[in-house]
């Protein structure tokens, strides 16, 4: 028997795009997998060198093309590139929210948190909480 599925899982749990960092938060997310800690399969991850390199336009692109929320798994104080990383990433979040406002997108659809290279459980619980928040949003 063959069925066509049409985003059926995603209609249940919100689609979240996660931006992670190659050296710190992405290994943390890998760790969650390694330890079979479950989170929603509607979570997709793109890993970058540094969270301060995310362009607001990418965030907007994701939200306009089917993602319900964007989550930035930043390095916080651990970033090896810049001691001002958290500050920079924050600026990016604010800039995205400006753009989102113009398009009438709820600013809560982008969120950032620091995640470390062994933060497996925290990642899963972030996804669960954020998923709940997104599910409750009506924009």
């Amino acid at each position: 028997m063959s069925t066509t599925i049409n985003q059926s899982p995603a209609t249940k749990s919100p689609k979240i795009l996660v931006f992670s960092t190659d050296k710190i938060s992405d290994p943390g997310i890998d760790q969650a997998g390694l330890r079979k800690i479950h989170y929603a399969p509607s979570v997709y991850v793109i890993s970058l060198p540094c969270s301060s390199g995310i362009k607001p336009k990418w965030i907007l692109h994701a939200l306009e093309h089917g993602f319900d929320g964007v989550f930035i798994a930043a390095d916080g104080h651990e970033c090896s590139y810049s001691s001002r990383c958290a500050e920079h990433t924050n600026t990016i979040v604010e800039a995205s929210q400006e753009l989102m406002k113009e398009k009438n997108i709820n600013p809560r659809r982008v969120r950032m948190a620091a995640l470390c290279s062994v933060c497996a459980e925290p990642f899963a619980s972030h996804m669960e909480n954020y998923g709940k928040i997104l599910a409750s949003l009506e924009d």
Partner: peptide, 19 residues
């Protein structure tokens, strides 16, 4: 598709395939 798909979604194979 292992650390970020088959393993964390081992509870939901169907959805893991879609992801």
């Amino acid at each position: 598709i292992r650390e970020q798909c088959s393993w964390p979604h081992s509870d939901r194979p169907r959805e893991a395939t879609v992801k």
